[in-house]
C-alpha cells in the first residue's frame, strides 16, 4: 500500500514536472501540463470591444464560450502572421468561482518536456529592480532556455476600466 502511494506520489511529481513547450516568435515558453486542458487548432475569434489589447476575443469551444488571449501582445512581442502551426492552448484556471477555461494563441507547440527542479533557475534579475512578472523561472534544456509561465498571473485579465 505504502509502495503504491509512493508510486502515485512519484507519478504526480513526474506529471507536475512535465511542461508543454510552445513558441511565440523566437522565444519558447513552458506551461505545466497539469494546467492544460487541450490544444485546439486556430479558429475564428470574435473580438470583444472595449477590452484590453491582449484580449483577442471569445471562441466557441464545443458550445462553451471562452476568452482567448494574445500572449505576444501581453509580452510586447511583435505580432505575426497566423500559420498552419498557429493554435490555441486552452488552460484551466482555478478561481473562486470554480474552474475556468481560457485560451492563448501560440505560434506553435513543439513538445512536452520533463523538467527537473535543478534545471530551473529563478526569474532573472535584470538589475533594474523590476522583476519579470508572469515568470515562474527559466529552464535550461539541451542548451536552450524555456521561460516557464505562471498561469495564474499570465491569464489574469484586468478589468477593462484599468486599461482605459
Amino acid at each position: 500500500m505504502a509502495i503504491k502511494n509512493n508510486n502515485q506520489a512519484k507519478q504526480v511529481a513526474d506529471t507536475s514536472r512535465k511542461h508543454l513547450i510552445f513558441s511565440l516568435g523566437d522565444e519558447e515558453f513552458g506551461i505545466q501540463v497539469l494546467n492544460i486542458k487541450e490544444i485546439i487548432q486556430m479558429q475564428e475569434i470574435t473580438a470583444v470591444p472595449k477590452t484590453a489589447v491582449y484580449v483577442k476575443g471569445v471562441i466557441n469551444l464545443r458550445g462553451q464560450v471562452i476568452p482567448v488571449l494574445d500572449l505576444s501582445a501581453r509580452f510586447n512581442l511583435p505580432q505575426r502572421q497566423y500559420t498552419p502551426h498557429t493554435c490555441i492552448v486552452v488552460v484551466r484556471l482555478a478561481t473562486s468561482m470554480g474552474e475556468r477555461l481560457i485560451g492563448a494563441v501560440a505560434d506553435g507547440v513543439s513538445e512536452v518536456l520533463s523538467i527537473s527542479e535543478e534545471d530551473i533557475e529563478p526569474s532573472p534579475d535584470f538589475g533594474n529592480g523590476a522583476s519579470v512578472p508572469y515568470l515562474l523561472g527559466m529552464a535550461k534544456v539541451r542548451g536552450k532556455v524555456k521561460l516557464l509561465l505562471d498561469t495564474d498571473k499570465v491569464f489574469y485579465i484586468e478589468a477593462s476600466q484599468e486599461i482605459n
Binding site: P49, T51, V58, R100
Partner: peptide, 8 residues
C-alpha cells in the same frame, strides 16, 4: 460572456 467580460 463569463466573468472575464462581466464589466464590458
Amino acid at each position: 460572456l463569463g466573468e472575464t467580460f462581466s464589466d464590458s
